[in-house]
């Protein structure tokens, strides 16, 4: 799913599938069931200890009322206070979001969880199965979608180690035809040059393969001087030139 921000940059979200959402729902149902059980057991315990039949009746009535409150309001309250992450969703790395990418407000959360009454009959699962964004009826009526959050991607793991440049002190003379190389070639060069622990032989062999392909891609004539350069030197210079070119 793509969402446009106010400054016109589109954010990509991965919508959650039927499987993870079903597991999240199971976890939440277990928690809600546990809360209801505790309430009922507590109510019965108080009722047994109560002095009068009247008091016992009030205790049981209150316990039943509380259990019902958990039944209707668990998901609503859990999604409201946690910003769309009930304990079950949180465990599965899921989050409820408005279709506009904003956080859903109380009305949207109320709608999607009231329509849950219809969805739990199996209709929800059926609709989710066929919906491209795995939305159930409650999501459709509430204008919400459940997305997967990748909280694990850390900057440290993303920032690649610096490229290893050994053969050339600078970018060297401009290579003719370098404008024919694009982002894909640049990525390939970076991937090669940031690779650690290559033996000298292997590095030279891989560089030769890469250089041959790049020369073809740049459509260098067979007589071009660049074809005479050591492959590692060519690869390093190409990388530096690509990195420094104006955009």
């Amino acid at each position: 799913m793509r969402v446009g921000t106010a400054d016109n940059v589109s954010l990509g979200y991965t919508t959650a599938g039927v499987g993870s959402r079903t597991v999240a729902q199971l976890i939440d149902n277990l928690l809600a069931g546990l809360l209801m059980l505790i309430a009922l057991a507590g109510g019965l315990a108080v009722a047994r200890a109560a002095a009068s039949a009247q008091g016992a009746a009030w205790a049981v009535g209150a316990a039943v009322a509380f259990a019902f409150l958990v039944y209707v309001a668990y998901f609503f309250v859990a999604e409201l206070v946690s910003g769309g992450r009930t304990p079950g969703k949180s465990a599965m790395g899921l989050r409820v979001l408005g279709v506009d990418g904003g956080a859903p407000d109380a009305a949207a959360i109320a709608v999607r969880n009231l329509v849950r009454l219809v969805d739990v009959t199996g209709i929800g699962l059926f609709i989710m199965f066929f919906h491209p964004q795995s939305r159930r009826l409650g999501d459709l009526a509430g204008g919400t979608v459940v997305v997967r959050e990748r909280a694990t991607l850390r900057l440290a793991s993303v920032a690649a180690p610096p490229p290893i440049i050994v053969r050339t002190p600078d970018a060297g003379p401009a290579v003719e035809g370098i404008e024919r190389l694009g982002a894909a070639e640049e990525n390939a060069l970076r991937a090669f040059l940031t690779r650690q622990g290559l033996t000298q032989d292997t590095r030279a062999r891989l560089a030769a393969q890469l250089a041959a392909r790049l020369c073809d891609r740049m459509q260098l004539p067979p007589s071009a001087p660049e074809r005479m350069w050591p492959p590692e030197l060519l690869v390093e210079r190409l990388y530096l030139q690509l990195e420094n070119r104006p955009r």
Binding site: V3, T5, A6, V9, L11, G12, Y13, G83, G84, L97, G98, D100, G101, G102, A103, P104, D105, A106, A107, A108, V147, E149, A151
Partner: peptide
């Protein structure tokens, strides 16, 4: 950005 966006944009 996807995590920060809904913190700012909400009803």
């Amino acid at each position: 950005c996807a995590r920060a966006h809904p913190l700012l944009y909400r009803g």
